[in-house]
Design a binder for these strands. Structure first.
Lengths: 205, 205
DNA sequence: CCGATACGGAACGGAACCGTATCGGAATCC
DNA sequence: GGATTCCGATACGGTTCCGTTCCGTATCGG
């Protein structure tokens, strides 16, 4: 493998001398972690040796960047999901359907990885915090904004509890796409629309 | 520890001779598995040695009953949850609130164990099947019955999709109590009532 | 060009765990 | 009482992984 131009992997560290760290190796390591988890390796069962082998990297290259498996996993968790889908500003109903229809559909890998991270999230406060800040909270905030707009336009009830409504909208889809909690929902083709319509009728202004 | 009267642990096996298997040891092993998971051991990281030590049992005693870790875990999964809560037959609203208020509250240990089982459930079809048959499906069926009754009495819409409604009722509570998906719901004290009321208003007859 | 650092790869000692075997003792049936 | 099986405990060889250290090479700044 020919090494091309590399970007500094840790720009904060003022390293002046010597060969800079390969951002290519950095990315390959994070990708290897996600690949292995997606293929069925539990987070606990992830071995640094398997990660290094999959990434085509020496173990020392990993330990040079992260103190241990925990630190590596936290960085991987943040990388897992990009920015949330944005609403377009149509009707509340159309925006909600737009936001919800991508739950567990945009990134198939994330769907497979998330259940494997649940043990970490429920055990480690640090993993829970990062999961919340990087993944769930930004997505809730987008949906809150849509609901707030609905309240100001009068489409939705003024005394609406936004947090509860957000949870009611997302939870059924999340649980279905992540762990297939109720397999019978596989056969429902307009699931998102049904959920949105029931909730909107329940919280109409 | 004095060994008292023992029940046959595997009544199907027609064993006539020798010392019978200790049901005390049987129970201790299953309890040890649940204890260890509750304390934060991942299913994958569970070691037979730790289970034996916690149960106060020799490793051979475990291997005498189960072929390996997988079989032991499946039996543990079935044991985890008892029969579901039953409705009393009041109004649909009261029954739904009754059923939902125990989600993740009756057995605190189950709440901590379930997220740790998610990787198994999403990876192994056998674990998924047992999880569905022994845990989720019986609870859905109880709630379906309540909803069907509501349809016949006219409280609920006749063309109601029961599967979707069941998921809409349970999912927000399940996700909150299991993984605390939205921590802001901690401060909502009438969460169950809010959810039931929004859904019922959405699917009213 | 030279010093410094990173690279992939291989090897290391130590630790944990697997599944089996064996021990002396205990419980039960015939 | 004798045969049989299970009991908890311990030891075993084999495997996997950890985190470190060492190669020879590659890539940077000065």
């Amino acid at each position: 493998m020919t090494e091309l131009a590399e970007l500094p992997a840790t720009p904060g560290a003022a390293r002046t001398q010597g060969r800079p760290r390969s951002s290519r190796a950095h990315e390959a390591i994070l990708e290897a972690v996600l690949d292995l988890i997606e293929e069925g390796t539990t987070v606990e069962a992830l071995s640094m040796e398997a990660i290094a082998a999959r990434a085509g990297v020496g173990k020392a290259t990993i330990y040079r960047r992260w103190a241990g498996k925990d630190e590596l996993l936290l960085e991987t968790l943040v990388k897992l999901k990009g920015p949330p889908t944005q609403p377009v500003g149509d009707s509340v109903r159309a925006d909600l359907i737009r936001l919800l229809s991508v739950v567990g559909q945009k990134d198939q890998r994330a769907v497979r990885v998330m259940p494997c991270l649940m043990p970490e999230v429920s055990r480690s406060p640090e993993a829970y915090r990062i999961w919340q800040e990087a993944i769930t909270e930004p997505r809730r905030e987008v949906m809150r904004e849509v609901l707030r707009r609905g309240v100001t336009t009068g489409e939705l009830r003024a005394d609406l509890d936004i947090e509860v409504t957000v949870s009611m909208l997302i939870s059924p889809l999340l649980l279905h796409r992540m762990v297939r909690w109720n397999p019978r929902l596989d056969e429902v083709d307009d699931l998102t629309e049904q959920i949105v319509d029931v909730v909107l009728r329940g919280v109409a202004g």
